[in-house]
């Protein structure tokens, strides 16, 4: 299965809707970066509303794709993390560093818009 990636204006929204394995995450990384380049994307939302579990590998992949997107001039906001997911990640020892997050998609988009404005300044 592929993680669906939708486009709105110059942003991509990827909603992870099923339990992902390593390969799916790696493909997702490639697809996302490829689309940033091909479609002149400035912002990305990765929505985790339906995600129950993230282990260290998947967390690292998400952190990596955020940094890679930044190198291509795009910004990433992670949205919709459940409390159980946040608790488990922190206890596991994963803080996701300086990754930008928002409670839900709406706030995430608002945050992303501001971040994109800042790039253009």
């Amino acid at each position: 299965m592929k993680i669906p990636i939708l486009k709105i204006k110059n942003c991509l929204i990827a909603s992870i809707q099923f339990e992902v394995d390593d390969r799916t995450v790696m493909e997702f990384q490639d697809n996302l970066l490829e689309r940033i380049r091909e479609e002149d994307i400035r912002g990305i939302i990765i929505d985790l509303t339906s995600v129950d579990i993230i282990d260290s590998f998947i967390a690292k992949s998400i952190a990596d794709v955020t940094k890679m997107a930044r190198l291509l001039g795009a910004r990433v906001v992670i949205t919709g993390m459940k409390p159980a997911l946040a608790i488990t990640l922190v206890e596991l020892g994963i803080t996701l560093g300086d990754i930008k997050t928002a409670l839900n998609l709406e706030r995430g988009l608002a945050r992303l818009e501001k971040m994109i404005e800042e790039i253009d300044r």
């Binding site: 129950d52 579990i53 993230i54 409390p83 159980a84 608790i87 488990t88």
Partner: peptide
Amino acid sequence: VDQARIATSIS
């Protein structure tokens, strides 16, 4: 939360 803790540990 404990379901997530257990599943993550297994992972």
